[in-house]
Structures are given as C-alpha cells and as structure tokens.
Amino acid sequence: MEYKAPSSIDEAVMLLAQANGKAHVLAGGTDLLVQIRAGFTKPTLVVDVKNILELRTISVADDGVCIGAAVTGAELGEHDAVKAAWPGLVEATELIGSTQIQGRASLGGNLCNASPAADTVPALVAASAICLIAGPNGQREAPVEQIVTGPGQTSLKNSEFVVQFQLPKKLPRSADAYLRFIPRTEMDIAVVGAGVNLTLDKKGICQQARVALGAVAPTVLLVEAGAKALIGSTLDDAALDKLRAAASAACNPIDDKRGTVEFRVDVAGVLAKRAVLIAKQRAEMN
C-alpha cells in the first residue's frame, strides 16, 4: 500500500487518476483506517488530503459558509461563526465518536463513508449543503443528498473527491437542529437521526423547511412531505402531528438488533418533531 499526502487539489486528482488498483481518499481516517485494519478494504494507494489548504479551511462570506471537507469536528466545534449560523450541523458533527475522534473526523469522511447512520448527513441535507467536487474533468457541484447512493456506495466517479461543503446564506429567523436516538447517551451510532432546517416569518409562520432522516433507509431521506406539513403553519400541534406522521411514513428501515422496524419508524417521527421544536426556538431568537 502506497501513502501519498499531496498539497494541492490537482496533485491529488492526478494521483487518484493514475492509481493502479484501488485508491482511497484519507481525511481523518476514523472509518478508513479501521476498515483497512479489519481487512474490509485493501487499497493499493491512500491519498491523504489533509495537507490541501482548501479542504482544511472554513470561510465565512456574505453569501454563505464554506467548510473544507477535511476540517475536523473539533475545529468546527470551536468556530463561533459556524456555530452561530448552523448550530444543528455543528451539534451533529460533535456527536461523532469521542474527543479523540473529534480531533480527526471530518464532514467529508462522514459523508463519503456512506453509512446510512452518518450523523452529519441529515444535518447537511437539511441545510441544503452543496458539495464542491474535484475530479479529472475539473470541478463540479452537487447537492449532498445526491452523493450517497446506498450503504457504502457514492455517486462520486473514479478519482473524484469532495473538496468542500457550501452552506447557503443564512436567512433571518431561520435555524437548524439535529437529534439522534441511541441506546446509550454517548459514543454510539445513530439508530435514528433527524435534521431540520426552518425559516419563519415575523409572525412565526414557517416559510421554508427541510427535514432529513438518517438510519431509517439505505440512504439519508429528504422528507418533503414533512416539510410540506410545516410550511405555512405556525408549527402548531396539528402541523407537528402531520410532520410526525410524514416522517414515520417516509421510513424504510431495516429490522436489526439495534432497532426493530416499528421502533425506528415510531422514534423517527418523534425525533423529527422534537428537532423542529428546537429549530423553531432558535429561529425565533434570530
């Protein structure tokens, strides 16, 4: 196995394009190194992207926030502007692993590992994040929800990798939230996750909403019926009940030892509702 740590996007693309056999992109390595050690994957080349500036930078501009794909959870958690603008995304990131893992794990890795239970993905989807993707044919953009196509599968083509996440301009009276369910209180993998992003008007009527669920289907779900239930309402009990039902209805989970189908479906609805209430409270203060 060869290890390379290029310092530019072009160099990384070239290394990946020229790779003979299986090549993996390494950011924090909190998933990849475990998989290599366990023998699940045997790459001939590992390209460490942590030395590439664009992937390690957080930039805040008038039209939104850009987060490098290899920025660590700890860096994001200490970034006041991102925390203020996207508290839901930051709390989702900070739920990954332990303090030690936080020093390594990245948004890009969490997305491209393509686990249905990734915590940051519902939050990114709810936030309408766009991925900037580098590859042999230059750079392209794609919404986060188009990246993962199934457990362990992505739509990224050979030699492509995610450079950064672009979050839209934060509108007044809008906010996001993320909640997950685990059988423990810390250090676990989501049995169900729910990310919500809302925009209210001055009267408290919901203008925009996005609801995303994790771990209840092969990929993270964008629940449009859930958003519909909220938009135009004051997020009253009736709207929340509709959202809960829509979220539960959207679920297509597996039945496994971590949670039965019924349990996941039920909890997904409750989680979505509670995430909305948190986002609402935050939006009202913005």
């Binding site: 423990r184 209180t185 250090m187 676990d188 993998i189 030892k257 971590r258």
Partner: peptide
C-alpha cells in the same frame, strides 16, 4: 437497563461486539 445477550431460534448469539452489547459507560 442495557445489557443483554440474545440468541436467535437457531442458537446463534446475536451480539458479538461491544457496539451491540451495550455496557453502561461514564455518561450512563
């Protein structure tokens, strides 16, 4: 509250790691 080692009807133990076999941790 947490610990259980279930077997299926064929006598297969269902939990084989501490990710599934839930031990209480410092936060529980």
């Amino acid at each position: 509250l947490y610990e259980e080692m279930p077997f299926d009807e064929n006598g297969q133990p269902l939990f084989s790691t501490l990710a599934d076999y839930v031990l209480p941790g410092a936060t529980e």
